[in-house]
Write a protein that binds this DNA or RNA. Structure first.
Length: 805
RNA sequence: GCCCAGGUGGCGGAAUUGGUAUACGCAAAGGACUUAAAAUCCUUGGCUUUUCGAAGCUUGUGGGUUCGAGUCCCACCCUGGGCACCA
């Protein structure tokens, strides 16, 4: 019988289901070595799993199965991140209920994941849209509110005209909506905001504790954007106003020749002098209409307008003009900048365009000049002294903005706040959670800066819990990132009705040891989750500073044309089709064999066939009777051939240990591609001798090593062909003996003038003299050495000998 | 513009960290089995020259260090990713 994955795989999946996936269940409190291996949970879209999901999930499944065989308790859960726009938009399009759409998609996703043979602890499955889950998302919000970390404020926001909702800064990429690609508009709206900036310093510092890809750390660092500087006040000449300026280079303050205000700056209009009013106000109005996208990307030349007003430089009492320009951002620093054209590129550009004075205050060797009492000091040293001299205040500024947290959409967690005209904002009591999302007929976003919930008067209008007077619920919902900011905790205690998580369980399992997922969440999910985790730490819900110790980003799988997979290109590979044709084991293994996990690599269907052939050969070796081979070999075998086989059989034990070592080390270092090639080499070696002469030990080793990669085939071979009564799950991972790996001989490479001239089999550990003798006996080497005088011999033990002439 | 990562056969990629470059797989060529095809199995294996013994060249390009460089150093070119008026 040939290898038939379509029979084997459903058979085992049924058995696993029938046992309720019990062997993958984990105890709440591990009593031995344990490891938490986590996947980024999927958004259950209508399209189902794609090959990219499978890449990361296979990697984590291999690790999970491996560590179980190593005797670890492995926590490997799965769930659904199901709130958010795609489900809602799809529901609107097809006139269905998002809840039903999500339920259907989840069912499909679960079935697909089980069809690939992933060993999740399904007892712990979670769903962010389940009221029993989002009760705790709302609970966290209430705690944030109580601690003053959630507040409502009128703020300039990013508005996506197509999704008809506000977006967080992190959701805007190149001025466009991360979801739909529409150009984002600026609006001022009253919104819920989370004070992530309160954690900026800790979010930055604690990156040092993490074993994460350097580029993800860098991205977070850049996003947080810490800079130390000084705030200095400039008096407006002839007025009682002061302009506060933030600078990181206070040492250049003697070089300030003008000030610039952002158009939004509160003093911009106030200080305008006669004759300058008209132009300046026109400039300000124009700038305010422009989106940030326009201000940053389409403007090539600096623009600006003079206010007619002057300020006094506190360093040297000089009168300097005050300008307004949109190159100064209101959202960073103080919204006002001191212009030092001699030492800042942007200021130089501005000064040149408007013919402003350029005054050098730092010499080319880094010393302060033209700065009165500070001349001659190295600029670094001067900073502190000059700051003191001008009355500057040391401050730390961040690029990071607070997290705009409300969305004008239906499909999200309701914000548990009531608005009373008398009492103001009144949070729900914890006992009133979950505040359930009401059933509703129309989900379309209203576009009126409110979610469609606003139209359900029976839900919106409530009595104020404090004064019992008429009040209204907050109608906006939370962003998609809310539920995913803490889900990894709920897996540990998914059914707890009293608490978000039992602290003992948290202590037992956290932090996540290995977290695998795409790099696209570098500054979204991963930053938000770290923020919430730190908050939960502060209020005593968790005991760990950071949620994810080690992060691994899998690369993108490209289409066969080397381009990104997309429906419009028609190069999308469907995992279902591949499974149907070659089986889930081949799919899993191929995706691991393509190359290093973190690389982006193109799909190649022919490569799947290669893996399929390999698995078929494993099958033939172990499950089939190779009568044909037996006959052929037995009859024709010469004495020489028999001797060779015997030698091979002896050599195989060494190869077995070598393979165990290689596969073990490669799995632990997530080098699955080379682990698989080691398995292939092992199988190729076994095929060097008649198959009926292959010892059972080799077959068993092969199956055990193969199990994490191809669990269905391994299970079938283990129980059916090799006649074991228990699952491979319960077997121990094979061990290798280092002493068996030691070779007696090695290939001595003989070089003449660094060119390889011969390779000689030599005993390990021989010294230079012995090696020299061996090498000189070689006719090949003699040829090259006959006339030359040897000037030098380089000998590396157990490796090479090099004659230099 | 700035900051990372990376350039190895026709392709995906290996290479014990300075010591046999191209493991493993795909594709290709030749052969066996077959009426035939598919499947399977065996053999070949970078490029150039060749008297078939072999000789020379080869890890993006050009230099350097070294007995020896894919690996280390310098300069440049290209690809991918991130940041982008953050004062």
């Amino acid at each position: 019988m040939p290898y038939q994955p379509n029979k084997i795989e459903p058979k085992w999946q049924k058995i696993w289901a029938k046992n309720n996936y019990k062997s993958w269940h984990t105890k709440d409190k591990p009593n031995k070595k344990h490891i938490y291996i986590l996947d980024m949970f999927p958004y259950p879209s209508g399209e189902g799993l794609h090959v990219g999901h499978i890449e990361g999930y296979t990697a984590s499944d291999i690790l999970s199965r491996y560590y179980r065989m190593k005797g670890f308790q492995v926590l490997h859960p799965m769930g659904w991140d199901a709130f958010g726009l795609p489900a809602e938009n799809y529901a609107i399009k097809t006139k269905k209920n998002p809840k039903e759409v999500v339920a259907k998609n989840i069912k499909n996703f679960r079935k697909q994941l089980q069809g690939v043979g992933f060993s999740y602890d399904w007892q712990r499955e979670i769903n962010t849209t389940d009221p029993n889950y989002y009760k705790w998302t709302q609970w966290i919000f209430l705690q944030l509110y109580k601690k003053g970390l959630a507040y409502e404020e009128e703020v300039p926001v990013n508005w996506c005209p197509s999704c008809k909702t506000v977006l967080a800064d992190e959701e805007v990429v190149d001025g466009k909506c991360d979801r739909c690609g529409s150009v984002v508009k600026r609006k001022k709206l009253r919104q819920w905001v989370l004070k992530i900036t309160a954690m900026a310093d800790r979010l930055l510092k604690d990156l040092d504790l993490l074993d994460w890809p350097a580029r993800v750390k860098t991205m977070q660092k850049n996003w947080i954007g810490r800079s130390e500087g000084v705030e200095v006040e400039f008096k407006v000449a002839g007025q009682n106003d002061y302009i506060n300026v933030f600078t990181t280079r206070v040492d250049t303050i003697f070089g300030v020749t003008y000030l610039v205000l952002a158009p939004e700056h509160p003093l911009a209009k106030k200080i305008l002098q006669e004759n300058y009013q008209e132009d300046a106000i026109e400039y300000i109005e124009k700038a305010l209409q422009k989106s940030d996208f326009e201000r940053q990307f389409s403007v090539k030349e600096k623009t600006g307008v003079f206010t007619g007003a002057y300020a006094i430089n506190p360093a040297n009492r000089e009168r300097i003009p005050i300008w307004i320009s949109d190159y100064v951002l209101i959202s960073y620093g103080t919204g006002a900048v001191m212009g030092v054209p001699a030492h800042d590129e942007r200021d130089l550009e501005f000064a040149e365009k408007f013919h402003l004075t350029i005054k050098e205050v730092i010499s080319s060797d880094g010393k302060v000049i033209n700065s009165g009492p500070f001349d001659g000091l190295p600029y670094k040293k001067a900073q502190e002294k000059i700051a003191l001299y001008v009355g500057g205040k040391k401050v730390v500024r961040y690029k990071l903005r607070d997290w705009i947290f409300s969305r004008q959409r239906y499909w999200g967690e309701p914000i548990p706040i009531i608005k009373c005209e008398k009492c103001g904002l009144v949070p729900l009591r914890e006992s009133q959670l979950p505040l359930k999302l009401p059933e509703i007929k129309k989900y379309e976003p209203t576009g009126k800066n409110e979610s469609p919930l606003a139209d359900i008067s029976s839900w919106v209008n409530v009595k104020c819990p404090k004064c019992k007077g008429p009040a209204k619920r907050e109608v906006n919902t939370m962003p998609q990132w809310a539920g995913s900011s803490w889900y990894y905790l709920r897996y540990l205690d998914p059914k707890n009705k009293k608490k978000l998580i039992d602290l003992k369980k948290e202590k037992a399992w956290m932090p996540v040891n290995i977290y695998i997922g795409g790099v696209e969440h570098a500054v979204l999910h991963l930053l938000y989750a770290r923020f919430w985790h730190k908050f939960l730490y502060d209020i005593g819900v968790v005991s760990t500073l950071e949620p994810f110790s080690r992060l691994i980003n899998q690369g993108i799988i490209l289409g066969e044309d080397g381009e990104k997979m997309s429906k419009s290109r028609g190069n999308v590979i469907s995992p279902d089709t591949v499974i149907k044709k070659y089986g889930a084991d081949s799919l899993r293994m191929y995706e691991m064999f393509m190359g290093p996990l973190s690389f982006s690599k193109p799909w190649n269907t022919k490569g799947v066939i290669g893996i399929y052939r390999f698995l078929s050969r494993v099958w033939s070796l172990i499950a089939e009777n190779n009568d044909k081979l037996k006959e052929n070999d037995a009859l024709k075998m010469t004495v020489e051939a028999k001797r060779k086989i015997k030698e091979n059989i002896q050599g195989l034990e060494k190869i077995r240990h070598k393979t165990i070592k290689k596969v073990t080390e490669d799995i632990e270092n997530l080098r699955f591609n080379t682990a698989i090639s080691a398995l292939m080499e092992y199988l190729n070696e076994l095929y060097q001798i008649p198959l009926d002469k292959v010892n059972k030990k080799h077959k068993e080793t092969l199956v055990l090593l193969l199990f994490p990669f191809a669990p269905h085939l391994a299970e079938e071979l283990w129980q059916t062909a090799l006649k074991h009564r228990k699952s491979v799950e319960f077997e121990k991972w094979p061990v290798f003996k280092n002493e068996l790996l030691e070779e007696k001989f090695y290939t001595l490479v003989v070089q003449v003038n660094s060119k390889v001239r011969d390779k000689i089999k030599a005993k390990k550990g021989i010294n230079e003299a012995e090696a020299k003798k061996l090498a000189k006996d070689s006719s090949q080497v003699k040829k090259y050495l006959s006339k030359q005088k040897i000037k030098k011999v380089v000998f590396v033990k157990d490796r090479i000998i090099n004659f230099v002439t």
